[in-house]
Design a protein around this nucleic acid. Structure first.
Lengths: 146, 146
DNA sequence: TTCCTTGCAAACGATTTGCATTGGA
DNA sequence: TCCAATGCAAATCGTTTGCAAGGAA
């Protein structure tokens, strides 16, 4: 999916939900499209060079996550990072640094994905838990912290 | 490993580190041994029936996590839950409810574990990220929230 | 006696919210 | 015009910390 295509998809989804695709939100989406992993409100705020106050940023993130345009990732120290939702960014997983908390995207071999998918189905069939998806984290130390 | 055995291991590890295995900490460990998944400070606090103030609880959790007796799990709403470290509780994964945030333990088929282990090694060998382990979350809705 | 631990209250940091204002369709 | 979005400041909430008192080795 091209960048402008993603933007169009987002605009459509938001409009459907009666949510405006404002300039501040466009900046958030642009930053997330360029990022190699999910970003926190603080990280976004510094990238966007203070043109959007933190409170508005938090509100935009919440609204867009609600509309399933963004997806949250919960990391260390109570920090929530956001990324484009799977239907926009594609299914992937994360490399998480135990020291600094940085998160990078990673793709798994199709066979492993398929195995994980089967696992989720098996859990769902047990009836004890309505399993809907999976998230794998490979934990370790990033280059900067190693 | 039996309960009393786990206790002995914990006592040993803490003593080594010059940390006392006090009554409050024993209560935390007991609650975690009975739990079917990681518990937050608030959840522990209500179980322990206020016999330990929250601040002491947080301190005990931090100290024991530092000593590698407990392991943290970061969930929604900036809530950190703790469980016994892997060397005490055995390797396992989690079922996470997207609604209430509750977490349950789950074991994976050995073949899947082995595949995940191989994946971590492959990532580590790439040299870009010092991969050390993996954590899989099966996400969905728990029985209460379904 | 030496340190670790405890309890309370105050401090923190990430995130949320009330309210009045601005702006887009 | 109408309703969503914004900005600021104040409020929340999970968590941390300073400090003085208590407790185990």
């Amino acid at each position: 999916m091209t960048s402008s295509n993603v933007e169009a998809q987002i605009r459509g989804r938001l409009t459907e939900a009666g949510i405006r695709y404002t300039d501040g939100r466009r900046q958030v989406v642009a930053a997330l499209m360029n990022a190699q992993g999910p970003l926190s409100a603080a990280e976004l705020h510094s990238q966007i060079a203070d043109s959007v106050p933190l409170s508005s940023l938090y509100r935009s993130l919440a609204v867009m996550a609600d509309a399933d345009v963004l997806a949250p990732h919960h990391g260390t120290k109570g920090i929530t990072r956001y990324e484009l939702a799977e239907w926009l960014a594609g299914h992937h997983h994360h490399l998480v640094c135990v020291d600094c908390g940085a998160v990078d995207d990673i793709e798994l071999p199709p066979r492993l994905e398929s195995t994980l998918h089967d696992l989720v189905e098996a859990v769902a069939e047990s009836g004890e838990f309505a399993a809907a998806g999976h998230a794998l984290e490979v934990v370790g130390r990033c280059k900067a912290c190693a």
